[in-house]
């Protein structure tokens, strides 16, 4: 009960901070909104619908999953910034489990990612991406799951970093390639051998694909845009979430005390 309260308090703090930081809300939204508003329609206009594929919906779903996943991951990595601002000392000296601290952080940053998801959904609707109310409602739990998955990935990255500077530097290497490897806006069919291998290693791939499974399920008659089936993606996301979160926390807690 006490641990649960602490998890909620840590998560609540992240949400409070987000709501007070309007500049950050706009900054976080700018990039995904540009992709959804400009890239999707431009690709659709230029390439039409190859093999019946709706390119606008493809980019929209890809960006939605990627944004939520990355937002939660970066949010969790911000525990490093907390350490540099010394607020984390206050958390780490308190008598709650280290696992609760990480759980609270993942939960908080996942909740923080939700307003972004809602904004992207709203923009997609305005731009005429085909969607139904039932489809949107079905997407919400999937979005939350993807956010938690992103948070768990963030913990694994965090556990291997020593400073915010290091975090900024690895960002380009671990986040940017996944845009392409996960097929956020490019197709994954027929990738050359090495890219195919890398793509299957990229965790984001399974999050994007699971969201597309869900989207297509509510668009009867349209060409499915996912590459694997929903059951496989769900198992992959669930398993990686548990592995990343558990392993990352374990490494992080050890490194935190054994400096």
């Amino acid at each position: 009960m006490r641990e649960l309260s602490a998890i909620l308090a840590i998560a609540h703090r992240d949400l409070t901070k987000l709501l007070r930081d309007r500049a950050r809300i706009l900054g976080d939204l700018a990039f995904p909104l540009i992709l959804v508003a400009f890239l999707g329609p431009a690709l659709k206009a230029g390439f039409g619908s190859p093999g019946g594929l709706d390119l606008q919906a493809y980019v929209f779903t890809g960006v939605l999953a990627q944004t939520v996943w990355q937002s939660a991951a970066i949010g969790v990595i911000s525990l490093i910034a907390d350490r540099e601002e010394d607020f984390s000392q206050e958390i780490f000296v308190s008598p709650i489990s280290r696992y609760s601290i990480i759980a609270g952080k993942i939960l908080g940053e996942s909740v923080v990612a939700l307003p972004q998801a809602l904004a992207i959904l709203a923009l997609g609707w305005v731009l005429g991406v085909p969607m139904t109310l039932a489809g949107v409602l079905a997407l919400l739990p999937v979005i939350l799951l993807i956010a938690l998955f992103g948070g768990a990935f963030g913990v694994l990255v965090l556990s291997n970093l020593s400073s915010q500077r290091a975090a900024n530097q690895v960002f380009t290497f671990i986040m940017l390639p996944q845009f392409f490897l996960a097929g956020v806006f490019n197709p994954l069919q027929g990738l050359p051998g090495y890219l195919d291998v890398l793509s299957r290693i990229a965790p984001l791939r399974y999050a994007v694909d699971l969201l597309r499974n869900t989207y297509s399920a509510f668009q009867p008659g349209s060409t499915p845009i996912a590459v694997a089936d929903a059951g496989f993606n769900l198992v992959a996301v669930g398993a990686l979430l548990v592995i990343f979160g558990g392993l990352g926390t374990w490494i992080f807690v050890r490194a935190e005390r054994n400096r």
């Binding site: 009960m1 649960l4 309260s5 909620l8 609540h12 703090r13 409070t16 901070k17 709650i96």
Partner: peptide, 23 residues
């Protein structure tokens, strides 16, 4: 202290973390 939170919110955060009150 968390600069973005109020004094009371900082105190509340501490109180909950130490199990003095539920969240």
């Amino acid at each position: 202290l968390d600069q973005n939170l109020t004094g009371e919110e900082n105190v509340r955060f501490h109180a909950v973390l130490y199990g003095l009150y539920p969240w």
